[in-house]
Structures are given as C-alpha cells and as structure tokens.
Amino acid sequence: MQRLIVTLDGPAGSGKSTVARMLADRLGVEFLDTGAMYRGLTAKALDRGINPAEEGYAVVGLARNCDIRFDFGHSPPRLFIGSQDMTERLRDQHVTAHVSDVAALAGVRQVLVDAQRKVGAEHPRLVTEGRDQGSVVFPNADVKFYLDARAAVRAQRRADQIRASGRHADLEAIRDAIVARDHKDSTRADGPLICPEDAQRIDTSEMTLDEVVDLLERRVREAVEATA
C-alpha cells in the first residue's frame, strides 16, 4: 500500500475539520481530527474539576494516564477517552474556552503528538488536520496545506455551525475568542501555529466549501501523479 499523508494546518475556524473529512472521503483514505484529541482531553479535565489555566500539571497527568483513541469504524471517526465517547462534547462552549490552555501544555502535546504519529503508522493513507501537523507531527508528509481566512469570516462560519446544531451563537463573542485563540496558538512555546515552509497556503475567505475541497483534491492528485 502506497503511503499518502496529507496535512491541513490553520487557525481556529478555518474549516480544517470539514475540509479534511471531505477530502479524505474524495481520496478514499482515512481522516484524523487532531483537534478533537485536545478538545476531548479538555472536556475530560473539566469533568474532573480541573482548571486547565491554573492546574496544567493535573491535565498533563490526565493525558499520560488515560487512553485517548479513535474508533475508525465510524465516519467520521469517534473519539473515546477510556470507554467514554466524547464526540458530542467537542464543540461545547466551555471546552472551546479552555482548549488553548490545554494545547499550550508541552507535556500534553508530547503525549498527543506521539499518539498522532502512532495513528499515522497504523493508517498510512491519511488526511490529518490540526495546528502542527505539517510542521511538527508529520514533517515528511506527502502533501501539506495551510488553510486560512479572515477572522470575521471564520467567526461567521463557526456561528453558523453552532446555530445549525440548534444552539445560540454570539457572533461578536465568537470573533473575539477566535482572535484571542489565534494569538495564543501562534505565540505558545511548544508547537506554535505556523505555516510550514513547504505547505501550500490557501485563503478560503471567498471560497465555498466545495471549491476548497475541489482545489485540494486536484492538487493532491497532481502531486501523486508527479511522483508515480
């Protein structure tokens, strides 16, 4: 089986998860949502009464001592921590509010980067998305993309996503949170959000979802043909 690792990095609300899932379906490969791992761990920490901003040591201990895995029998894969399915918790607002604090912890990143590389070894035909996939986790990926969009556009997309699930969305608060998270993610000491030098940067601000997926699919297939 020929290996094909495609990475999608980018800031919060840039559509990475949806695009990566659709791209994986188009290419007939598997999909890894690494942000779900950080969000699932955040939810688990909050359930335990841990404040990630003040008790980072406790979050690191939790990461080291719990089994974080995906069930690839579902599409998209469902995230489990131990025997608990955390999938429906991942977009909770209180999880979103704390996930950057969790993602900034070097000890957490070490555990989850190792887990992500293990997934890549077990599933060598994979589209994986996150904030450090092409820069840290899979530096030798076959094709790398960096998706971006204006903060206002990303906020509107996230608000639409929340409203589609039947929940209230405060657009201004979402935009402020996205800007704050951009700053946290790009300035953290370990695995900061950057555009890898060899990644193709795509501004999706004026593109529809299908247009983005069409473009990425075409470029992946061109890259595969060029190396065949």
Score class of each variant (00 low, 15 high):
185 D>S: 09
163 R>Q: 14
88 E>D: 14
196 P>H: 14
125 R>W: 01
169 A>Y: 00
136 V>D: 11
212 V>Q: 12
65 N>Q: 13
61 G>W: 01
35 G>M: 14
69 R>Q: 04
23 L>N: 12
79 L>R: 14
23 L>W: 14
82 G>I: 08
31 F>C: 04
133 Q>W: 03
38 Y>G: 05
152 A>T: 09
97 A>Y: 00
101 D>V: 01
183 H>A: 00
79 L>H: 13
48 R>H: 14
44 K>M: 15
161 Q>H: 00
62 L>G: 04
198 D>E: 09
95 V>N: 12
59 V>W: 02
120 G>E: 10
109 R>W: 02
45 A>D: 07
35 G>D: 03
145 F>K: 13
195 C>R: 12
69 R>A: 10
157 R>V: 06
30 E>D: 00
219 R>D: 10
185 D>Q: 12
103 A>K: 02
74 H>D: 11
139 P>S: 13
105 L>V: 02
19 V>L: 06
47 D>K: 05
9 D>I: 00
122 E>A: 11
100 S>F: 00
153 V>M: 03
139 P>R: 13
8 L>Q: 08
60 V>N: 03
181 R>T: 10
210 D>V: 05
29 V>K: 01
7 T>R: 00
67 D>Q: 10
64 R>W: 06
76 P>D: 11
131 R>D: 08
11 P>I: 06
152 A>P: 05
189 A>W: 10
71 D>K: 04
113 V>W: 02
70 F>V: 10
134 G>I: 07
48 R>G: 13
198 D>L: 09
209 L>Y: 13
122 E>V: 01
52 P>Y: 08
97 A>Q: 05
83 S>A: 02
104 A>P: 03
135 S>R: 15
71 D>I: 08
112 L>A: 05
206 E>G: 02
176 D>R: 15
48 R>N: 14
103 A>F: 11
171 L>A: 14
22 M>Y: 13
210 D>S: 09
80 F>P: 05
75 S>D: 15
15 G>H: 08
64 R>A: 00
65 N>I: 12
179 V>K: 15
196 P>D: 15
216 L>T: 01
87 T>N: 04
102 V>H: 06
63 A>F: 02
18 T>L: 12
10 G>M: 05
189 A>F: 07
217 E>V: 10
201 R>P: 08
77 P>G: 07
13 G>C: 02
15 G>V: 08
112 L>K: 05
17 S>C: 03
100 S>H: 01
62 L>V: 04
208 T>P: 12
